[in-house]
């Protein structure tokens, strides 16, 4: 039988569970719920491969495949490239200056115990791209 240590669905990564230990690029360890916008920005500055991009939420829709799945459309970076991602409604994104947000914060808090606000159109999320695309 599968381990019964957590009630987290297999589709949700374990690092979003409250109390998970996250290592920043400078080696500092923080709990996932304690992360701040600056932690991501500073880690990306240290990184030789990754850079932070701003991804603005343009649309949030339900999925045709499952009631627990949402399709979030982002406008990414200065070129405003349109990117859609299909995620579980409880999947948290980090909003600049605000913190963790999801399409269904009640489920996120229930499943992960991660303090979370409602992800809304217009929110600017932290995302990553490669530094050297050329």
């Amino acid at each position: 039988p599968p381990p019964s240590s957590a009630a987290v669905p297999p589709s949700l990564p374990p690092y979003f569970i409250k109390g998970s230990i996250i290592q920043l690029a400078d080696g500092e360890l923080k709990r996932v719920e304690d992360l701040k916008t600056e932690d991501f920005i500073q880690s990306a500055e240290i990184s030789s491969e990754l850079k932070i991009d701003s991804s603005t939420v343009e649309r949030i829709e339900g999925s045709h495949t499952s009631p627990n799945v949402a399709v979030v459309q982002f406008s990414v970076g200065e070129h405003r490239a349109q990117v859609s991602v299909e995620v579980m409604v409880e999947y948290p994104f980090f909003v600049f200056g605000q913190g963790w947000s999801s399409c269904c914060p009640d489920r996120t808090t229930q499943l992960l115990e991660l303090p979370c606000t409602k992800l809304s159109v217009g929110d600017v999320c932290i995302s990553l791209t490669l530094k050297n695309l050329r």
Binding site: P14, I21, I22, Q23, L35, S43, D53, V76, V83, L128
Partner: peptide
């Protein structure tokens, strides 16, 4: 061999979605 169980540590970038914009030029 039984490996000691330690607290997992996750890299910061695993928490951030990788949204690579499509390059049109």
């Amino acid at each position: 061999n039984v490996e000691p169980r330690s607290v997992p540590v996750f890299p910061w970038h695993s928490l951030v979605p990788f949204l690579a914009p499509t390059q049109s030029d």
